[in-house]
Structure formats: C-alpha cells, structure tokens
Amino acid sequence: MKRARVPKRSDERRDFLKLVLTGAAVATGLSARNADGAPAPAEKQLPEIPAGDNPLLRMQRELQRALKKPVEQRRWAMVIDLSKCIGCSACTIACVAENKLPPGVVYRPVLDEEFGEYPNVARRFTPRPCMQCDNPPCVPVCPVKATYKRPDGIVEIDYNKCIGCRYCLPACPYGARTADFGEFFTLGTPKVEAYETQPNFEYGREWNRAGNKSPVGNARKCHFCIHRLEAGMLPACVTTCIGYATYFGDTNDSESLVSELIAKPNVMRLKEELGTKPKVYYRM
C-alpha cells in the first residue's frame, strides 16, 4: 500500500508556487458558478493540475478523477490531522468568507482544549465541521424532508423547504448545525454594507439573505463546499489550511490520499459509539 507522502521542506516552495498559479487559474478561469448562475459542467471546465507531490495538488487531481464518475459512485470524506493543526482558525474564517456566513452561524469552529496542570500541560485543537454521517440523526427528525443524504454522502439542507423548526439542531450529536437568525455584522449601523447582502452559492444555487429570505430562518451547516467540489475545487477549509492538516477526497477511490489515511490505525472518529458513521476522520 502506498504511504501518504509528507511533503519535504525543500519541495514546498516549488509546490507552493505551482499551487498559487493553479489557484489563480482556478479563480480567474473557473468559478463555482457560471456567470448565468447555472451549475458549471465539471469536466469541461476543470483546470489542468500541475504535477507535484504537494498534498493539495494530489487531492485536486483526485477530485477531478472523482468528478468524472457518476455522483453516486463518489464518497466524500475528510481527514483532519490533529497533530498538525495549530489552531489558527484559518479554516473557520475561510469557511465564513466562502459561504458568506452571518453572525452567529459557523460551520467549522475549532475546539481549543487544554489538558494537564502546569508544568505538564498540553493543548489540542479540533476542527469540527459537519461529520456528513452515513447514519445522520438530523435527517429522520426533519418533519418536512428538507434535509437528506445525497448520493455522494453529503448531508444537504434544502433551504427552500426548511421551515425552521430547528429540531435537527439538538438531534446532531456534534452540534454541527446552527440557525440563521437573520443577523448582519453591520446591522444597527447607518447602513447594512453591500458585501453582506451579496449572494452565496451553497449547494450550487444562489442564495441572497436580504429581505429575510432563505437561508435566514433556516438550519445551516457545513456541506463540504459542495458548490466548489462540483466546480473542481477543494473545500475552502482544505485549501486554506496552512499546515496541511485537512485532507479531502473520495473514499471510493482506493488510490486517494484520504483512503490511504483512513486505513491507518491512528485514525478515529468523534463519538463513534453512537453509530452515526461520520465521514470526517481525525488523525492522531
């Protein structure tokens, strides 16, 4: 079995430059949406990924490989390496920026825990996205079928169906769902700034919160940046992680980096005893 290659420092500068160029190409030539707002046809617009051992480049290539398969043959998963996470919260902020999250809504907080007593102390950072459980407790409780599991394993919320009863919030054992109460950062100032009323593109559709429209009043949660995935881009939290602590890919691809990582014994999932079968793995 192939081992996950940990990048060497000497490679990193070259890989970083490649990545920046790739990122620029992605940002300019490819957006999660076409100009007319229709979903981007994945295969046609996928950028060329340069060769290299950088984990991000590798995951990008694997993502493109997965997108060539029918959606029901993909199985997205995330691996978070706790030994690499430094608790910078860049992923949290990237997620907020990508999904234009309002105040009080967070998809990927980083738990910061301290252990021991001085001088024997330790700190652990645990990013906590939605676990995209294979047995999601949030799905059966929804009274109007507004949340469901997609064929690729992502648990989706249909903002237009959700009635905002918030029953799914306490049902989630990971506290991964938050409710949108319609707040804006600049509410209460002379003017709600325009950047706050720009649409976001969650689930590949355009959502504009102005005028208390959905997703205001809805339950919200991490969706592995499905709108980016379908455009050939990795989730925002993965690409912004400064320590390569978050990995993403298709577990139905045995050659993928995430498949390699989750096959190792130093991997666990949160609250595994509940039988929810999360698709987010933690590497110790």
Binding site: P143, V144, K145, K161, C162, G164, G217
Partner: peptide
C-alpha cells in the same frame, strides 16, 4: 411563532416526513 419560516407551515401537511415524530 417559533418557526423560522412561519409561511411554510403548510409543508407539514403536504410534505410530511413519515419518519419524523414532529410531523
């Protein structure tokens, strides 16, 4: 009044999830 979208309460009748106790 507690619902985030009061205007959609009718969905509880038209799109009820038979697996949900709330429905």
């Amino acid at each position: 009044a507690d619902l985030g979208h009061m205007d959609r309460f009718w969905r509880l009748y038209t799109f009820a999830n038979p697996r949900s106790i709330l429905a």
